[in-house]
């Protein structure tokens, strides 16, 4: 996983709430068995509308998505995270994230940043009035900085450390195989097996 410490980039204002993962990437794109190249599916239904914000060339190359509340609801598809990353996003800012989406994003190194509704609205106003304005997402300092706005955000120490080091969760867990084996030895015998 790519390390995340500090990222600076331009922002896309997505003024919608309840952006579900079916919108982020529709089911049709989920038939693929590979892990890259999902940028074509990102918001594919909405991109058919010429007035959709991603079709505005002033936001080409932007890397921070600033969205309304309840971002990433619905399906557990991690393809939603892959599509956002493949398109070029490094962070998503929203007043509230769905739990599974947030977990998936953190696994893949896409930073979900939760800010208050008013701070999110201020960032959206900024990105709309000045699409060239840059936003800095500083994981080290747990801070979002933009012209006229500096706000801190919450993230637990462990998750922050893992992202900053770019560590693979499986590798970390495999250091504890003795604990896993000990737990297995004490599991009740009545637990079902599939074979």
């Amino acid at each position: 996983m790519e390390k995340f410490t500090v990222h600076t980039g331009r922002a896309v204002p997505l003024r919608r709430s309840n952006v579900d993962t079916d919108q982020i990437i529709p089911a049709e794109y989920l038939k693929r068995v590979t892990r890259s190249g999902f940028e074509d599916g990102l918001f594919s239904a909405w991109r058919n509308d010429p007035s959709f914000v991603l079709n505005d060339s002033r936001y080409d190359g932007a890397t921070v998505l600033v969205a309304g509340p309840d971002f990433g609801t619905g399906s557990s598809r991690e393809h939603a995270v892959w599509a956002l990353q493949d398109y070029g996003f490094r962070a998503v800012i929203s007043p509230r994230f769905a739990d599974i989406f947030r977990g998936n994003a953190l696994k893949g190194g896409l930073l979900p940043v939760q800010l208050s509704e008013s701070d999110v609205a201020a960032l959206q106003d900024l990105a709309e009035s000045d699409p060239a304005a840059e936003i800095t997402v500083d994981l080290d300092a747990r801070e979002v900085r933009a012209p006229g706005l500096t706000v801190s955000f919450d993230i637990d120490d462990y998750t922050r450390w893992r992202l900053m080091e770019g560590l693979d969760d499986i590798g970390l867990t495999l250091r504890h195989t003795d604990d896993i084996a000990a737990f297995e030895a004490s599991r009740p015998a009545r637990m079902p097996v599939t074979q």
Binding site: E78, N104, I180
Partner: peptide, 22 residues
């Protein structure tokens, strides 16, 4: 509970998941 593909791989490899208690 539902999990993403990275977690599917994690469970396949370790039969465990690191989780914050909701």
């Amino acid at each position: 509970f539902g999990i993403g593909t990275s977690e599917v791989e994690h469970v396949l490899a370790t039969q465990t998941l690191p989780l914050q208690r909701p």
